[in-house]
């Protein structure tokens, strides 16, 4: 196996939200297979700065797969050619020497491009603000066993809670639907007694906000589940449908 790669990058460049974007081609040599994808992007930007050119703008933060900040649609897949990881956890060993790598921003009407590879994902925050919380006075810490919670509920809730809100589900969906994200956020709370109290109001408010923000309608293709770096299950979408319809019938 070769230790270093020579690659060609086709990167989306866009100066601003209203500007017309285009692809720029860059060549990089001697990229270690041990470097991460974002380290490769850093090397690219350093090279561009040294050449007096403008670096490529991309989102990143924790670089350990838990913050949900990195995005990038790489070679036809959100978070690139590996399963259950974020872009920052992607390594160059997943690519071949001489390969051309196409890097695009998330594309969806709900996620307008801000610059280059950075998209505006604040619509997710707006959906959370509509009801993705528990509004109670917490008081003192209760005894851990005061409220019994079935193990499978706790497990499912924790699985749903592993959603980092990166938006890969929307990027992968042919309908630009945010259902996997919203269903994870509704499920993690609806499965626990503390969250159940407001489950109906939450489901209605978050779905209404999601629709308002221009996300598409789920057609159950399951692409979101495949590309989710946290493996969030589409059974959460069935639960969201159930919670929402139940809440609406009660009205």
């Amino acid at each position: 196996m070769e230790k270093f790669l020579n690659i060609t990058l086709k990167v989306w460049k866009q100066n601003g939200p209203r500007e017309k974007g285009r692809f720029e081609t860059y060549k990089l040599s001697n990229i270690s297979v041990d470097s991460s994808f974002l380290e490769m992007m850093d090397i690219l930007n350093e090279q561009l700065i040294n050449e007096g050119k403008e670096p490529v703008a991309f989102d990143h933060d924790c670089r350990e797969g838990i913050c949900g900040m990195c995005s990038l649609y790489i070679n036809g897949r959100p978070h690139g050619p590996d399963d259950d990881i974020t872009t920052c956890q992607l390594h160059m060993r997943k690519f071949k020497d001489g390969e051309t790598i196409t890097i695009e921003p998330w594309r969806s009407a709900g996620f307008p491009v801000i610059k280059d590879l950075i998209v505006d994902r604040s619509s997710f925050d707006k959906i959370i603000m509509a009801g993705g919380y528990v509004s109670v006075n917490t008081g003192g810490v209760p005894d851990a066993n005061a409220i019994p919670i079935p193990k499978d509920h706790a497990d499912e809730s924790m699985d749903a809670a592993s959603c980092i809100g990166c938006g890969a589900c929307v990027a992968a969906c042919k309908n630009g639907s945010a259902m996997l994200f919203v269903s994870a956020k509704v499920s993690q709370l609806a499965l626990l007694p503390q969250g159940k109290v407001e489950a109906a109001r939450r489901a209605k408010a978050m779905v209404a906000r999601m629709d308002e923000l221009g996300f598409g309608n789920c057609t159950n293709t399951g692409a979101c589940e495949v590309e989710c770096p946290k493996g969030i299950s589409i059974s959460n979408i069935a639960r969201l449908n159930r919670e929402y319809l139940k809440a609406k019938i009660k009205d």
């Binding site: 036809g76 897949r77 695009e104 594309r107 996300f215 159950n220």
Partner: peptide, 24 residues
């Protein structure tokens, strides 16, 4: 509606997600 929500820009690198049924 879904076409609109997808936006006017398509992915140049296509869609290579595996395990999504053609029918869907």
């Amino acid at each position: 509606e879904n076409r609109k929500a997808r936006g006017s820009d398509r992915y140049a690198s296509g869609n290579k997600s595996t395990g999504v049924s053609w029918a869907s």
